[in-house]
């Protein structure tokens, strides 16, 4: 796409990018939440593909850095600062957290998508990062893109078009 390098951020992954031709992408977000963080001055961004709300839900084994909202947000902030971004300038945008299916055997009250969204909001608030825009909930999938050159964030869907966050 016009010389852009699309870099997929898979389940539980965290990626930081600082090259203008890089585009970080969470493809096909369902109940997961994609979080885009961007420093518009340093032009450094990060994306986290959050799978579950809390690291306490883990099974005591090593997990990829972006798997949980609480630890994922923390790791993303640390990685961004390491790469030269300023915490105070960070802009956060999120998409996903849908309820695609009502799974058998799961507690109907346990809407993991909504809990992921809530946990991302809470983790950001704890670190005093403002969530400026989100497109979350519903029952459909989303693809989230962050353009490092401009900080532009796009959400695309199947049958519901594409829009800027």
């Amino acid at each position: 796409m016009n010389g852009c390098r699309m870099e997929a951020v898979g389940l539980g992954e965290l990626k930081v990018a600082d090259k203008p031709d890089q585009v970080l992408v969470c493809y096909g977000l369902g109940s997961c939440v994609g979080l885009a963080l961007y420093d518009p001055v340093a032009r450094i961004g990060a994306m986290v593909h959050v799978v579950l709300p809390e690291s306490s839900m883990g099974r005591g084994r090593e997990a990829p850095p972006g798997k949980y909202a609480d630890t994922g947000v923390e790791a993303a902030l640390a990685a961004l600062v390491d790469a030269g971004a300023s915490r105070s300038r960070l802009i956060a945008k999120a998409a996903g957290g849908a309820r695609m299916l009502r799974l058998a055997g799961s507690n109907p009250k346990l809407d993991i998508g909504a809990r992921n969204t809530e946990a991302v909001r809470a983790a950001l608030a704890r670190h005093q990062i403002k969530l400026v825009a989100e497109d979350t909930g519903g029952t459909y999938g989303r693809t989230l893109q962050l353009y490092i050159k401009t900080g532009r964030v796009l959400v695309s869907t199947v049958g519901r078009g594409e829009h800027e966050l």
Binding site: L11, Y27, L29, G30, S31, G141
Partner: peptide
């Protein structure tokens, strides 16, 4: 079995939801 549910959407979004449930165990 539970009654069938038909969904038309991105494969990732559908499969991720199931993967998330399985990741718990």
């Amino acid at each position: 079995p539970t009654p069938p549910l038909l969904v038309e959407d991105m494969a990732g979004a559908i499969l991720e939801t199931v993967a998330t449930d399985l990741l718990l165990s």
